[in-house]
Structures are given as C-alpha cells and as structure tokens.
Design a protein around this nucleic acid. Structure first.
Length: 358
DNA sequence: TATTCGTGGGA
DNA sequence: TTCCCAAGAAT
C-alpha cells in the first residue's frame, strides 16, 4: 500500500513548517525567514559549499569554506587564482579532482557566462564537477527551480517513506522519481534543504528519532517499525592492502624534500614526499630507491592510511642531510615555515609527521 | 553498470 | 580495531 505524500500536499507543508523552526544555520545559507522575504543566497557560495560537501561532512567543510570565501569572495576571484593556491587551500579535504574541477568551473563561469552562474539545472550540469545532484541542488537552492534533489540523506528518507526494497544504487531511478513527485512548486529550495536536514538530524542511519519527525505519519518504514532496515544497499567488496615505501629527507635547517604528483589519478596534482611501490594494484613496479644518496634509517612503525578502496601500509625511511645538498630535478626543499602551506594530502602529512617526531 | 577517487569522526 | 559513512562526479 502506497502512503504517498504526493497525494497529501499537507505533508510537504508539514516538512516546510518543521524546517522553518529547525533549519540548521550554515555559513552558505540564508535562513528560512529571509528566504520567505524573497531573498536568495549567493549562487557562488551555494556552488562552493555543494562541491565541498560532496561525500564530505558539514563539520569538515566548515573551516575550508570560511578560508575559501575569505580568500576568494567571488567566482571571478577564484577564476583568477593560481591553481596551485587552490590545491593548497583544498589540501586535507580529499577528492582532489573536486578542486581542479572547481577551478575549471570558475574559469568557465567567468569567461563564458559573464561571471554569473547559469540558473537552470540543465545548464549547470554541463559544468565541470557539477553532476545530477549538485546541478539540482544549486538550481533549487539558489534559483528556486523545483528540481529533484537527491543526495544520500534524501535516499535514506525516501527509501524509508516508501519502504523501497530495491538496493542502492539500483534504486536511484525510483528514488529520483519519488522525489520529483513530492517536490513542491513553492519553496523548492527550502524543501530540498529540509529533506537533507531531516536526514541529517532526525532520519539518521542509526537510531532515527521518528517521534520527532514531521512526516512520521506517512512513513511506511515507521509504520512497519523497521526504519533502520532502509536503505537496502548492495554488498560492498572488501578493501585490499597495498604496501609501499616513503622517503623523508630532512635538511639541516629542517626543510623537507617534496615533489609533485601527476595531474591525474589518486591525489592528482598534490605534493608528496618521494615514495614508491603502491601506485598500482599489483604494486612493486620498478623500484627507484631513495631520492638522494644518504644514510637512510627505517622508522620503527610504518604509516597506515585507508583510502576509499584500499588500505595502505607505508614503510618510512628518514635521512638527515647537510644544507648544501641540492634537490633532485622536479623536487624542492620545503622550509619548516612553509610546510603547512604546501598542497600535502593527509596521508603525506602523516608520513612527514612520523619522520619528524621519531 | 562498475570502478576510481580522501578524509575524519563515531559506533 | 574495524566498519560505516558524509550535500557524488567522472570515466
């Protein structure tokens, strides 16, 4: 039996009323009250936040968002920025292709759209880094287009509302159709954010607080008493473990030897200490060995790090060298006061830290 | 359709 | 410790 809130418009009304009282206050939002006064948020800030929030928690994004909008207040500023500087500011946030696409997108908006974001989801979806979700989200939130906004939160809420047994990601089509069916013509931006806030604060993955849910009376999973069973997900495959070796050369003045990774692939375009052996699945391609002739000492504990699809165990070697030692081609010495500003991903910061402690 | 792409926090 | 997962996109 279908308990469709599409046939019950008061349900989206109930959700919006809940949102008016419980909306999360976030730096890239304007509150429900200002929205109802006809105001809309800055599309640049909406876009930037949506890119950063892809597969990333609100808590993690917060400080990055603040630093970005302070340094680059508008899309034209970001378009004019050095890509290296963008990568440095993004370092630690992960999924670094987002940063490269962010820069490309800013350049296109600046040069081909007169510095203004397109206002429809279809146009937005043609821009780099903007897929189905982000296009719909920006269109709804910044321009009040009634586009179906489907993220992980909405998938959870909707699969529970309708007790969708089809496992994700196969159920995505059905979920999107359901969302399209319940998205209101009025306040679609608030509706989208309300659905996401509901998923983030009430309709949580574990132990949802259905008693506080504004739409619990039309929720099929709640009626059955098994909301936590949804969404059903396809089994995930286990992560293999790769092993490799990293070399931390420390100059007498404390400078550390760094180099730049290739533009494409894992950690593309980011900085790293010289390392080898873990790039491919098979591992153990030709061993280059250490980047300098020096007295290398292996640290007692390897560095462990887990990526999306594999575990990494990195043996770390350290060598202390004189200040007269030149950096190899394509590498550079990074002074202690500049290390924080380098585009070092988290795994490389771990490696450097372990070598400087020990 | 399936794989690749990060990270940190919480259970 | 280990697993899960958080406002997905590109290929």
């Amino acid at each position: 039996m279908d308990t469709m809130i599409a046939s019950d418009p008061s349900n989206s009304v109930a959700l919006l009323a809940w949102y008016d009282r419980h909306a999360r206050r976030l730096p890239w939002r304007i509150g429900p009250q200002r929205r109802r006064d006809g105001e809309r948020p800055d599309p640049y800030r909406v876009w930037l936040s949506e890119i950063m929030l892809q597969q990333t928690t609100v808590a993690a994004v917060g400080p990055y968002f603040d630093r970005f909008v302070t340094r680059w207040p508008g899309v034209a500023d970001l378009a004019a920025a050095e890509t290296d500087h963008v990568m440095q500011e993004w370092a630690g946030l992960g999924y670094y292709s987002r940063a490269r696409n962010l820069k490309r997108c800013a350049e296109i908006v600046a040069s081909e759209h007169g510095g203004r974001f397109p206002e429809t989801s279809d146009e937005l979806a043609t821009l780099p880094g903007i897929g189905p979700y982000t296009a719909a989200a920006i269109a709804a939130i910044a321009f009040d287009e009634p586009a179906p906004v489907v993220d992980g939160n909405v998938e959870r809420v909707v699969t529970r509302l309708y007790r969708i047994e089809t496992p994700l990601p196969k159920a995505k089509t059905e979920v999107r159709a359901r969302v399209a069916g319940i998205t209101p013509e009025t306040r679609p931006g608030c509706f989208a954010q309300a659905m996401m806030d509901l998923g983030a604060t009430i309709c949580t993955p574990k132990r949802p607080t259905c008693a506080l849910c504004p739409v619990n009376e039309s929720c099929a999973a709640h009626a059955e008493g098994d909301p936590e069973r949804f969404p059903v997900k396809a089994p995930k495959k286990e992560k293999p473990t790769r092993t490799g070796t990293a070399y931390v050369a420390v100059r007498a003045d404390g400078a550390v030897l760094l180099r730049r990774r290739a533009e494409k692939g894992l950690l593309g375009g980011m900085a790293e200490v010289p390392n080898e052996g873990w790039a491919t699945k098979s591992g153990g391609e030709e061993a280059e060995g250490p980047p300098l002739r020096a007295d290398w000492v292996r640290l007692p504990a390897p560095v462990r790090h887990t990526f999306t699809h594999f575990h990494l165990v990195l043996d770390v070697y350290r060598a202390r060298v004189g200040r007269e030692i030149a950096a190899p081609a394509d590498a550079w010495w990074s002074a202690p006061d500049r290390l924080d500003g380098e585009a070092l991903p988290a795994v490389m910061r771990k490696v450097v830290a372990s070598a400087l402690e020990g």
